[in-house]
């Protein structure tokens, strides 16, 4: 085992800069490029943030008004998952590559990992938790997935289902090919596309029946 010297002095009091300056050639450089991060309320206190954005805001999520303390650079996915407890919205990439985080904003699909929460002030947000009606009746898309036994690991499922729901609500009688186009912003690593499209077709049918 190589010898590693760990210097555990806390704070600048006992800190001798000369001690390390030789040979310091890298810091956590690889991390800085990594990802969006979650900032909790632990360090900063609520109130006015730098840049003058009001941090305390009211979000309309699944028909409910939720008061929440949001940092200026916080993504909607982080607010939903870590501040509002809505963990049904998944993070597969955090960078607009996979669609696992898809939610509806005013009925339109968006990647919640790539939107700032401050952008959705005053707009209607719908997540996977808001599709089922309060009495437990599934949304036609969810029912379609139940009927077709859709998804494997299902980590992609909330995102796909949100994309599917927005599409079939607006496009009665859509074809399998049109559904595929509409779902092309979502990635399924289990490759369950065949069954996902079976479910989408079934959802179109169920929407028709409901109409």
């Amino acid at each position: 085992m190589t010898e590693v010297e760990i210097i555990r002095d806390r704070g600048p009091r006992n800190y001798s800069r000369r001690k390390f300056i030789k040979g310091v050639i890298a810091a956590g450089a690889t991390v800085s490029a990594s990802s969006y991060l979650f900032r909790g309320p632990g360090v900063l206190t609520a109130g006015q943030a730098r840049g003058g954005v009001e941090r305390l805001m009211t979000l309309t999520v699944n028909g409910q008004q939720r008061r929440v303390d949001v940092l200026p650079y916080e993504t909607l996915a982080m607010t939903l998952r870590y501040k509002l407890g809505l963990t049904g919205t998944k993070l597969g990439c955090d960078r607009a590559e996979c669609g696992a985080c898809t939610v509806h904003i005013d009925g339109v699909t968006h990647y919640s990992c790539s939107m700032l929460t401050h952008q959705v002030r005053g707009r209607e947000i719908r997540t996977i938790e808001g599709l089922e009606s309060p009495d437990g009746e599934l949304h036609p898309v969810q029912q379609a997935v139940m009927d077709e036994g859709g998804f494997q690991c299902a980590f992609c499922a909330p995102g796909f289902i949100m994309s599917m729901a927005a599409f079939v609500e607006d496009n009665p009688g859509a074809s399998r090919a049109q559904c595929a186009q509409a779902l092309s912003g979502n990635l399924c690593r289990c490759g369950d596309y065949n069954k996902i499209l079976d479910s989408a077709e079934r959802a179109v049918e169920l929407m028709d029946q409901r109409a």
Binding site: T2, R10, P12, Y15, F20, A26, F38
Partner: peptide, 24 residues
């Protein structure tokens, strides 16, 4: 929450770690 420090090189040896600024 934990965060990792990843190696920036394909093969190297850690000679010394100074976490003092971080721990402060």
């Amino acid at each position: 929450f934990a965060k990792l420090l990843l190696s920036p090189m394909p093969h190297c040896r850690v000679r010394r770690i100074d976490p003092s600024a971080a721990l402060a």
